[in-house]
C-alpha cells in the first residue's frame, strides 16, 4: 500500500485533491489487539441492540456499527494524558480507550460497577480524561477550554472532540472553531461523517462542505476516506504530532458509514442506501480478506461478549449516593 503523507489543507493554501479512495480498498492485516478491540465494539453494539429488542434495556442508545475503526485507529495516536470528548454515539470511543465492556454495559443497564453509577447512561460518561455528553455541539467550547488549559499547563497534550456531520448545524461549533484558531488551541475535531443525521441525509442539512467551513477559519483539515486502521494511522500521525508541538486546531473528517439505525430500529433510509453502507462495512471486508484470523477472533469476542452480558445482567442494581 502506498504511504500517504498527511494531506493538510490550511485556510490559505491551495487544496490538492487526495487520491480517491472509495472506502473499499483491501483492509490491512491488523495486530490481534486492534482486531480484538474492533470486534469487542462490534459485539458490544450488537449485544446492546439485542438487549433492547428483548426489552431488557431502559431508555435509549446510539450504536456505532460501521464506525468502530475510527477510535481504534485514532487512539493509538493518543496518550492517556489527552482528553477525549465523546458524543451520543460513544460506545466505541469508550471501549477503544478503556476496553471495559463490563463497566459500560453496567452503566447502560444500571447495574453495580457502572462507570457512572447508572446516572449518566449511554451518552453521559466521565472517566479519567474521557467525557461524553448528549447535546450536539456543546462539548466543542468545553474541549476548547480544556485545550486552553493543556496548552498552558501540559504542553504537548491535546483535546480531542468527536462530532458528526449533523453537529455542524449547531452554532457552538463555529464559536469554538473561531476561538480555537484565534488562540492556537491544540484541539483535534474528529468529524464522523456517516452521511446521515438521525434521519436526515447530510445533503439535506448541510450547505457547502466541512472542508470549506474549516478553511473559512484558516484551520487545517484532513479528509480520511480509508476504513483501514493502518492507513488511517499513517495518514494522521504526523498531523497529530504537529498540533502537539505547534498548538493549533485540526479538523479531521472521516467519510464513514452508519451500518445500523440511529438509535434502535429507527432506520428510515432507503434499502439501497443501507445496502451501500453495509457493503462498505469493515467487518465483512476484513473477514473476507483475512478469514482465518478473523474467524477465530470474531468467535472469541462474540463469546466473550455473551459472557459480559450474562455477568453484568446478573449484577444487582447500581447505587447512587446523591449529594
Amino acid at each position: 500500500m502506498a504511504s500517504a503523507a498527511p494531506h493538510l489543507i490550511g485556510g490559505t493554501t491551495t487544496a490538492t485533491v487526495p487520491p480517491a479512495r472509495t472506502g473499499a480498498e483491501p483492509l490491512s492485516l491488523l495486530p490481534a489487539e486492534d482486531l480484538d478491540t474492533l470486534l469487542m465494539i462490534r459485539h458490544f453494539e450488537l449485544a446492546v441492540l439485542e438487549l433492547f429488542s428483548q426489552g431488557l434495556l431502559h431508555g435509549t442508545t446510539h450504536t456505532c456499527l460501521g464506525q468502530e475503526y475510527i477510535p481504534v485507529a485514532l487512539y493509538a495516536l493518543l496518550d492517556e494524558g489527552d482528553y477525549i470528548f465523546s458524543n451520543h454515539r460513544g460506545h466505541g470511543h469508550y471501549l477503544a480507550r478503556f476496553r471495559d465492556p463490563h463497566g459500560l454495559l453496567a452503566e447502560i443497564m444500571g447495574r453495580e460497577g457502572a462507570v457512572c453509577h447508572g446516572v449518566g447512561g449511554s451518552q453521559h460518561i466521565y472517566r479519567d480524561r474521557y467525557l461524553s455528553t448528549g447535546v450536539q455541539g456543546e462539548s466543542l467550547p468545553v474541549a476548547a477550554g480544556v485545550a486552553l488549559h493543556l496548552r498552558r499547563a501540559e504542553p504537548g497534550r491535546i483535546a480531542v472532540v468527536h462530532i458528526g456531520d449533523g453537529t455542524w448545524g449547531e452554532g457552538a461549533v463555529y464559536e469554538a472553531l473561531n476561538m480555537a484558531q484565534l488562540w492556537r488551541l491544540p484541539l483535534l475535531v474528529v468529524v464522523e461523517n456517516n452521511k446521515i443525521a438521525q434521519s436526515t441525509p447530510t445533503e439535506r442539512q448541510m450547505a457547502g462542505t466541512i472542508q470549506a467551513r474549516a478553511a473559512a477559519f484558516g484551520i487545517r483539515y484532513h479528509h480520511v476516506t480509508s476504513h483501514d486502521v493502518v492507513q488511517v494511522r499513517r495518514e494522521l500521525s504526523d498531523a497529530i504530532a504537529d498540533i502537539r508541538t505547534r498548538p493549533q486546531p485540526l479538523v479531521v473528517e472521516f467519510s464513514t458509514h452508519r451500518v445500523g439505525p440511529h438509535s434502535k430500529g429507527d432506520d428510515s433510509r432507503p434499502a439501497e442506501v443501507v445496502r451501500h453502507a453495509a457493503a462498505r462495512d469493515w467487518y465483512h471486508r476484513y473477514g473476507e480478506r483475512h478469514p482465518e484470523q478473523f474467524a477465530v477472533a470474531d468467535r472469541n469476542q462474540r463469546l466473550a461478549m455473551a459472557e459480559v452480558v450474562r455477568e453484568v445482567q446478573a449484577r444487582p442494581a447500581s447505587r447512587w449516593e446523591h449529594s
Binding site: 467550547p141 468545553v142 480544556v146 486552553l148 488549559h149 499547563a153 483535546a159 476561538m179
Partner: peptide, 9 residues
C-alpha cells in the same frame, strides 16, 4: 463553555 472546560481541568 470554555470556562466549563477550564473548570473541568
Amino acid at each position: 463553555g470554555v470556562a466549563a472546560g477550564l473548570a473541568l481541568t
